[in-house]
Amino acid sequence: MDQLPDQPPPTPKKLGADFNPDRPASNRFGRRLQRIRDEVERNRTVGPKYPTWVLALILVAIIAFFILIVVYS
Rank of each mutant, 00 (worst) to 15 (best):
K49S: 09
A61Y: 01
P21N: 04
E39C: 04
T52S: 00
V54R: 08
L15W: 11
T45A: 06
I69R: 02
L57I: 12
G47V: 01
D6G: 10
P24M: 05
D38R: 15
I62F: 00
N43G: 06
F66N: 09
R44F: 03
D22C: 10
Q34P: 03
N27F: 03
G16Y: 06
R31I: 10
N20C: 04
V71M: 03
D18S: 05
V71W: 01
V54T: 11
G16I: 07
Q34G: 05
A56H: 15
R32W: 10
S26L: 10
V46D: 11
G47Y: 02
R35I: 10
M1Y: 05
R28K: 07
L4G: 09
T11H: 14
N43A: 14
E41I: 09
R35W: 13
D6S: 12
Q7C: 12
E39M: 00
R28H: 07
Q34C: 09
P48G: 01
G16S: 06
A61F: 01
N20L: 01
V60R: 07
G47I: 00
A64Y: 04
T45N: 10
K13R: 13
D2A: 14
A25D: 09
G47A: 06
V40P: 02
D38I: 09
L57R: 14
L68F: 02
I62G: 00
P8R: 07
L68A: 03
P24H: 08
F29H: 15
N27D: 02
G47P: 00
N27H: 11
R37A: 07
L55M: 15
Q7P: 05
D18C: 03
P5G: 02
D6K: 09
K14H: 05
R31C: 10
L59N: 06
P5M: 03
P24S: 03
A64Q: 08
R44W: 04
V71L: 01
F66K: 07
V70C: 03
E39Q: 11
S26H: 09
R37S: 08
M1K: 14
V46N: 10
P12A: 07
T11M: 15
L59M: 12
T52L: 01
T11L: 10
A17F: 12
R37I: 01
I36D: 05
D22S: 08
P24L: 02
V40T: 12
V46R: 08
D2G: 13
K13C: 13
S26N: 08
V71E: 02
W53V: 15
A17V: 13
P51F: 11
P5Q: 03
S73E: 12
R35V: 08
F19A: 00
P10I: 10
P9N: 03
F66H: 10
I67R: 02
V40H: 09
I67D: 00
R23N: 11
M1I: 07
T45L: 12
P12N: 14
N20R: 01
N20K: 01
D38K: 14
I58M: 13
N43E: 14
V60Q: 04
D18P: 01
F66L: 13
Y50A: 02
I69G: 00
E41P: 06
I69A: 04
D18F: 06
F29S: 14
R28C: 09
R28Q: 08
K14I: 00
S73R: 11
L59S: 13
F29V: 12
Q3T: 07
P21E: 00
K49I: 11
P24E: 01
R37Y: 05
D22T: 13
K13V: 09
D2M: 08
I58Q: 11
D22N: 02
Y72E: 15
E41S: 11
P5V: 01
